[in-house]
C-alpha cells in the first residue's frame, strides 16, 4: 500500500497545517480556474464577436484567442500551478525530493 506513510505519528502541533495547506491549494485552484474560464470561454467564445472588431498582425482578436491565445494561457496556468505548489510543498515540509535516493526510496518504500 502506498498509504502506509500516513500512519506515522503526526508532527507536534497537530494537523492545523493540513487545513492551512489545503486552503491555500484551493484558493490557488479557484483563481487559476477563473482565468481558465475567462480566457477560453469568455474571450474565445462568449465575447468573440466584440473582440473580432480589433485586428492584431492580421488576426481578429477573438479568433486569435480561440485558436492561439487560449492555448498559451493554459500552458502558463499549469506552469504557475506547478511553481506555486512546489513552493507551498516546501513551506509546509511535504516537498518530495525525487532526485535524492533517500527521499525517493522513502516515497517508494511501500509500493515495490
Amino acid at each position: 500500500m502506498a498509504d502506509t506513510e500516513d500512519k506515522s505519528p503526526d508532527p507536534p502541533g497537530g494537523n492545523g497545517w493540513r487545513r492551512e495547506y489545503w486552503k491555500k491549494n484551493l484558493q490557488l485552484m479557484v483563481i487559476l480556474l477563473a482565468i481558465w474560464f475567462a480566457v477560453s470561454f469568455g474571450c474565445g467564445i462568449l465575447f468573440v464577436e466584440q473582440l473580432n472588431q480589433i485586428t492584431v498582425i492580421g488576426f481578429p482578436l477573438g479568433f486569435w484567442f480561440a485558436q492561439q491565445g487560449s492555448i498559451y494561457v493554459f500552458l502558463l496556468l499549469i506552469l504557475a500551478y506547478c511553481l506555486y505548489m512546489d513552493r507551498l510543498d516546501k513551506r509546509f515540509g511535504v516537498y518530495e525530493y525525487d532526485d535524492e535516493p533517500a527521499g525517493g526510496a522513502a516515497e517508494k518504500g511501500g509500493e515495490s
Binding site: 497545517w17 493540513r18 515540509g93
Partner: peptide
C-alpha cells in the same frame, strides 16, 4: 481518511524548510 491522505504529497518532515 483515504481522501484526506491523498490531498498531501508526502508525510510532513518535522524540520521543514522555512516552516
Amino acid at each position: 481518511e483515504m481522501v484526506e491522505s491523498i490531498r498531501y504529497p508526502s508525510p510532513r518532515r518535522t524540520q521543514a524548510a522555512g516552516a
